[in-house]
Design a binder for these strands. Structure first.
Lengths: 213, 213
DNA sequence: TTTCGTTATGTCAGTCTATGACTCTAAAAC
DNA sequence: GTTTTAGAGTCATAGACTGACATAACGAAA
């Protein structure tokens, strides 16, 4: 209890009237979690240890995050917001996948800026199956948001879902290869991934006739 | 140490001892789990209750299933096997998505037979976020298996991953609409889903030129 | 300043999932 | 028969969460 946050009013003084924001503790918890997960791995780290390093109690951890995994998944909101806005604002003449391609390009800078944090985070996730499950859930939710945004542009119900899934898979693919090799920036990897998707689409042109007996 | 396989040319007669099958208990646990999940929901059911209804101890539950969720996910192995075989045996001239389409058609009967069990199971999953996460993980693993099977046909590394993801999304989409409306069988829904995917692909033809500045 | 309402946090007791270590038992193999 | 072996029971415990209540910090109003 004798915890006087000496680090209050650090950079951004959110001036809105709000008694005790709780944000500093939240950030300390996230920081402590990433550190400990990197040092010992996800399974070998207890929530009590995370809380201790952050200078709070275990109960406080669960007030800020609904479960142990969630402490690593917090940036999705901004990403979703930017993508849906980009989709909504895209020229009406564009086809679904083109809309998505442009939306992904529009968050390029955001991801580039976050790279120093994202890469170690991804390493942690890649080593813990429980975290991979959560990530897949987040990706699915994001794809659902993209589909919704597409529908609001007039894209058909079912086509929107398919396009969102396909676009999302392509995006994830590009991000993964950009994580492994930052050369050329995310844009280069996005272009290559969507080019390959084009190839996949083109190769299916002969399929329809063949399928119909 | 004293592992005496009857070492002579054994391929099929591989059965090294098998005291007490353990299969009945396993099935009772699965049955009890589905029932209880339907009655009270996943979160409101404890592993102890499942075990009690199956007539075994809670400890035995965790000997058969690594965690509480896994009791609902057990049929994936057969499905994966059938799909990978179908992919491996498809004519070499076919394009990736056509290969996947045919593979999915080849498991149609299996899914139709399992429908009485699959539909209530899916209802349970749809109501429990924790189960949805696990399902997404299973789907991702299956997609990875499909990609591997495609690569062994000579499909490029990256293209295989993209095709598997896209095909899997389309398949899931078809299954979901077949769950909702069994009319015409799964085949009809598969055809429609892949037709829509074709539409998505066709609409991207103008994209490449536009993207290049 | 004091008081008051709001909010973050602490404290504590408890439930549930999951696992390790051990024993017991029945069926299979000899 | 005897031995082997794996399924199942028992006990103890760690760790992830949760509800209930008390307390401390802070902003705002008196």
């Amino acid at each position: 209890m004798t915890l006087k946050h000496n680090d209050s009013d650090c950079q951004i003084g959110y001036t809105i009237t709000m008694p005790r924001s709780g944000e500093p503790a939240r950030r300390r918890l996230q920081q402590a979690a990433v550190e400990l997960f990197c040092e010992r791995g996800y399974d070998q780290t207890t929530t009590a240890e995370i809380a201790a390093r952050a200078g709070v109690t275990e109960r406080t951890f669960f007030r800020h995050f609904p479960d142990k995994r969630e402490v690593l998944f917090d940036g999705q909101a901004i990403l979703r917001e930017m993508l849906t806005v980009a989709i909504a604002e895209a020229p009406v003449t564009l086809q679904p996948l083109e809309v998505l391609y442009r939306a992904f390009r529009s968050v390029e800078q955001l991801l580039e800026d976050n790279r120093p944090f994202s890469v170690p985070r991804q390493q942690v996730i890649d080593r813990a199956p429980a975290l991979q499950e959560r990530e897949l859930a987040k990706v699915a939710a994001l794809a659902e948001a993209l589909a919704l945004a597409l529908r609001q542009r007039g894209v058909g119900e079912r086509l929107a879902a398919l396009a969102a899934q396909t676009g999302m898979a392509t995006f994830r693919y590009a991000v993964a290869s950009w994580f492994a090799d930052p050369a050329g920036g995310l844009g280069t990897h996005l272009d290559r991934a969507f080019d390959e998707l084009d190839g996949l689409a083109a190769s299916s042109s002969t399929r329809k006739a063949r399928r119909r007996r």
